[in-house]
Design a protein around this nucleic acid. Structure first.
Lengths: 120, 120, 120, 120
DNA sequence: GTGGTCTAGACCACT
DNA sequence: GTGGTCTAGACCACG
């Protein structure tokens, strides 16, 4: 996955999202060491403080933890990770279905749309 | 539909969204007269300037037009409206499917989730 | 209460603490408006970013909330506030008692120490 | 007592604390020989430099002394030890009472809390 | 070399 | 005038 940001949402929020996905999909496996803050900020071409802020959010969400002076690690509590995944899916799903319902689409219409998109 | 706003997006954007939906779903039918800016801002408890800005956006999208001295009306061009509807659905759909793909869900998994949500 | 910081803990942590206490003791009553970030940072002679960080922590703890472009307010959910108070007391208490226990003081010794301090 | 460290304070500080307590409570009796730096650092799974630093602090506090080529010993000056104990108690006590006072608890409330904790 | 903190200062969107 | 974000750059403690 590339590091590309759009301009209408804070960069740090987008970083949080993408790191979350990497963790959830085990691109960064449980217990693995993250690149250093400096390296990550170089890679994303973002100020170290911005990266720090993003990582702080992940840490308070319990998805990563910091070993003093030694780096940051993905939590090895797979339970937290899979729970986060469920929560994320649920969140996207509900927002989406609410939007669709407002537009007065039935479940079957939604599904047929999805199948149509799939074929493209 | 109620007028409820969340705090992390501009209010006027949220107003635009909701008015769009009212127009698309014919809650405000094609050609009908909109409530006055003053009434709308009262109803939504929003600064009249904010409401004005939102209506400006709708107008430049061609969904409403202003009759000088007489108020604002929903366009009676049903074609524009239905096109807007398609565009909205497409937009939501693609964003949603992209999110789901990032989370490595297959089409069938997505659909089964949707059916599950439906039953709740 | 004055704004004085010691050098062995991050300033923003100390700000969080002191603001928490002001909220818990209703020096800043539930629902009241906080001074602006700028004013608070002037008052404490601290960089606005530092103050912002502290306020961010309070916000994610649910003790304050932000009204877009209008300022920050103490939550009016007194339940959250009193719960936070209990939690804080509990936290201090347990840490203290653990320390005392390690030093092999009995409960009665602790209490007699406290009474002695009180008289001074 | 186990060797467990939290991540938000320097490890060497925590080691100093815990060794101090062992000395004060005569777990390491006055005049007794301490385990070697190497053993201590193995036991605590800590870098020998870190352990060395901690022991250095204890030495300059006068709680231990080094016998050249022969290891480190707890001071046999019981006076120093008991004074250190008083100092520690006093320090914890004052910090605790100050915190409680800020939270506007009276002495009697504090004591009743302590008794309540005791029963648990 | 690691993360953590802080300052200074700027720009932005919103109301 | 409000909060929010971001950059640049510095310094620190730790191991």
């Amino acid at each position: 996955m590339k590091w590309e940001f759009d301009n209408d949402r804070p960069i740090y929020v987008q970083i949080v999202e993408q790191l979350k996905i990497r963790i959830i999909t085990h691109t960064y496996p449980p217990g693995s060491k993250l690149p250093s803050v400096r390296d990550l900020s170089m890679e994303t071409k973002v100020n170290p403080n911005t990266m720090q802020k993003a990582l702080g959010e992940l840490e308070s969400a319990g998805l990563i933890y910091t070993q003093r002076t030694n780096g940051k690690y993905v939590t090895d509590d797979v339970h937290i990770i899979s729970k986060e995944k469920e929560a994320l899916i649920e969140e996207y799903m509900q927002a989406f279905l609410q939007d669709m319902t407002r537009l007065e689409l039935t479940t079957e219409e939604i599904i047929s749309y999805i199948r149509k998109e799939e074929k493209q």
